[in-house]
């Protein structure tokens, strides 16, 4: 199996390099691809980075051609190993100095450098080192062991597909969907009680909120539940007769009420002086709620 793998390594590595090299050399979005890489900082500007990326693409294509045409030649295997080692060095440097930069390795990837990039580069090195040890050329291997060769090529192709982030949707999403179907949804179903966010949402759509809006200044400061009530505390400023003074604005709502089950929420509103803890009588202008316009009836 190992000898078969080293015999087929030039084919697989050549295929990988041909795909990524062609993407870099002929890709339309190489400039955009280059813009996210550490090359921009190394070379000074984006245009030079794009040119460098295209040169790397040309080199990859040349090595791929060498590997495919002369799989056992020391020159092509050595070039692949050196290219792979160069990639590893570049990736290590980029990861260390600019962890957020993208690698620019393939057209489909824009995210930060991850394990996929390192694995691809390591595989190129491994293929370059393994190829000279092969028993024969990759095109003669299927003649001797056709089934094993086909299985190995398919397996290797699957590994390469996994190593390309851009084609995730082809295999990863169906796999994850199938896992959800088999093992069930991992996230819990309906929980008892309404979350605080639902109470805040209800409050902010209530007439009480509108009435108190002249006083409230802060976002939600604190909340707690007691005796079936949910208390929401906000900070505000009350401009009364003695000038402006800081106050707490307290809203009390039914613990279970949400916008789904309570179209007209009843909210208790209290304004408490922050310094003296006295309840401040604030007139709450409860303007009439907007009347709903009649909906058009379908004919």
């Amino acid at each position: 199996m190992i000898s078969l793998l080293s015999t087929l390594a030039p084919l697989l590595c050549g295929g990988l390099l041909a795909a990524t090299g062609a993407g870099k050399l002929f890709g339309r979005q190489v400039a955009r691809q280059a813009a996210g890489t550490v090359l921009v900082r190394l070379l000074g500007d984006g245009r030079r980075a794009a040119r460098a990326l295209r040169c790397v693409g040309a080199a990859e294509l040349a090595v791929a051609a060498g590997l495919l045409a002369a799989p056992r030649a020391v020159a092509s295997c050595g070039a692949a190993a050196v290219l792979g080692a160069g990639f590893l060095g570049y990736l290590g440097y980029a990861k260390a100095t600019a962890p957020r930069s993208s690698c620019g390795c393939t057209a489909g990837e824009e995210g930060p450098i991850g394990w996929r990039s390192f694995t691809r580069a390591a595989l190129v090195v491994a293929a370059g080192l393994a190829a000279p040890a092969a028993d024969g050329t990759w095109w003669s291997a299927p003649a001797g062991r056709p089934v094993a060769s086909a299985v190995l090529v398919l397996l290797a192709a699957a590994v390469l597909v996994v190593l390309f982030g851009g084609v995730d949707r082809l295999w990863l999403l169906p796999l994850r969907r199938a896992r959800l179907r088999v093992f069930g949804h991992p996230l819990g179903g309906p929980a008892a009680g309404a979350p605080v966010a639902a109470s805040v949402e209800l409050l902010e759509r209530s007439l009480a909120w509108q009435a108190a809006s002249a006083v409230v200044r802060s976002g939600l400061l604190d909340h707690w539940d007691e005796d079936g009530w949910r208390i929401l505390r906000y900070a505000g400023v009350h401009e009364g007769g003695q000038g402006a003074r800081p106050v707490n604005v307290l809203f009390a709502l039914d613990l279970a009420a949400t916008v789904d089950n309570t179209p007209r929420p009843a909210v208790r509103v209290t304004v408490v002086d922050d310094a003296t803890d006295e309840v401040v009588q604030v007139p709450l202008p409860t303007a009439a709620p907007r009347t709903l316009l009649p909906l058009a009836e379908p004919a």
Binding site: R205, I231, A252, V267, R268, T286
Partner: peptide
């Protein structure tokens, strides 16, 4: 909190929904 709860439950009740937005996140 207990003090504020007592104060909060003594407040005026305002019933109804409005179309105004909030100050949340």
């Amino acid at each position: 909190r207990r003090f504020l709860t007592r104060a909060a439950l003594g407040g005026a009740t305002v019933v109804g929904a409005s179309a105004l937005g909030g100050l949340d996140a």
